[in-house]
């Protein structure tokens, strides 16, 4: 058994990670990629249906994006430009880790610019900039089954999907309205795809749901631990579930972003002192930076970080 001294390479601190020797392009072996590719094609052919696949253990923990990583690894090639975001930001630890993983194992170009990327892997957000038909959006999904909270058994939910028997979901939402006067689901808000399958949009805020509808980019969803892949083809109807007297509505803020001044992006709330004073900033870090650059005289330094 050869245990090579890879540890010698550790501690090398360059900006772009070194390509890891001895692993396949984008880590996964070709056979695994083929299995995943076949699953992706079926997912695209049956929009919103969760295709089971032989998910592999990845060198990142389950729950940390292994489904998204396996999809990205199976689709990217040498000419792709990859962007990875978590909570809308390119610089959160999970996003950096995943970006570095592909930098190390595939040596492909990465970017923070939404418009430059050909493949965008995301956790919990859809970028604010509209995506194009040349892009693929890969979602990391923790629990792919939208009916799971109402029915724990896969054997039962599978039947419900097969027969499009979604009464339980509508009852669930209606009980919510009866109790609170409104649907209180604020993220992972269920959608119906192409008037057929009810689908989990992954835990994006419902603010992002409307962006999924008729999106020009292909949307792929990967749940590694739950071993499911599903998809929404471009220009496909994605409707957030609602009732006539309780139409679907998204979050809004009275505040604007303290950095770029945007009043129509999703805002993160930041507590800035012991008194609990708050400020609001864009969750999409790239969008915020680009907006900030547009306001040349704004109260922001050139790095876009400091006020």
């Amino acid at each position: 058994m050869a245990i090579s001294n890879q540890s010698e390479k550790a501690g090398n601190s360059t900006e772009t990670p070194e390509i890891l020797e001895g692993y396949n392009f984008a880590y996964l072996d070709d056979q695994t990629k083929r299995m995943i590719r076949r699953a992706i094609l079926k997912a695209v052919a049956i929009p919103g249906y969760q295709v089971p696949f032989g998910s592999r253990e990845m060198p990142l923990p389950f729950g940390w994006g292994t489904g998204g990583i396996q999809i990205t690894a199976s689709i990217i090639g040498k000419d792709d430009i990859l962007k990875v975001i978590d909570q809308g930001a390119d610089d959160t630890t999970n996003a950096i880790n995943i970006r570095n993983f592909f930098g190390k194992t595939a040596g492909i170009e990465t970017t923070e610019k939404t418009t430059e990327a050909t493949v965008i892997q995301t956790r919990h957000r859809i970028p604010e900039n509209p995506l194009s038909a040349k892009q693929i959006l890969v979602y990391q999904v923790p629990i792919p089954e939208p009916l799971r909270w109402l029915e724990q058994r896969e054997s039962e939910t599978r039947k419900m999907h097969a027969l499009a028997e979604y009464g339980v979901m509508h009852v669930g939402l209606y009980e919510n309205i009866a109790h609170f006067g409104r649907v209180t689901t604020s993220y992972n808000y269920p959608v119906q795809v192409n008037d057929r399958y009810i689908m989990s949009p992954s835990p994006i805020p419902k603010f992002d749901n409307p962006k999924m509808d008729k999106m020009p980019a292909l949307q792929l969803f990967g749940a590694g631990r739950e071993k499911r892949i599903y998809a929404v083809p471009p220009f496909t109807k994605v409707k957030s579930l609602d009732f006539e007297d309780h139409p679907f509505a998204i979050e809004s803020w009275e505040e604007s972003c303290a950095l770029c001044g945007s009043s129509n992006s999703f805002l993160d709330e930041v507590i800035i002192d012991d008194e609990g004073s708050r400020m609001f900033v864009c969750s999409d870090s790239n969008f915020c930076r680009e907006e900030t650059e547009k306001i040349k005289d704004g109260p922001v330094t050139s790095s876009g970080e400091t006020l």
């Binding site: 729950g63 940390w64 909570q87 919990h124």
Partner: peptide, 20 residues
């Protein structure tokens, strides 16, 4: 993995809940 993934940032979802 899944229990410990709760250590990852969830600010966006939490913000949605705050608004609600």
């Amino acid at each position: 993995g899944f229990v410990q993934h709760l250590k990852l940032p969830h600010y966006v979802d939490f913000q949605s809940e705050l608004v609600t």
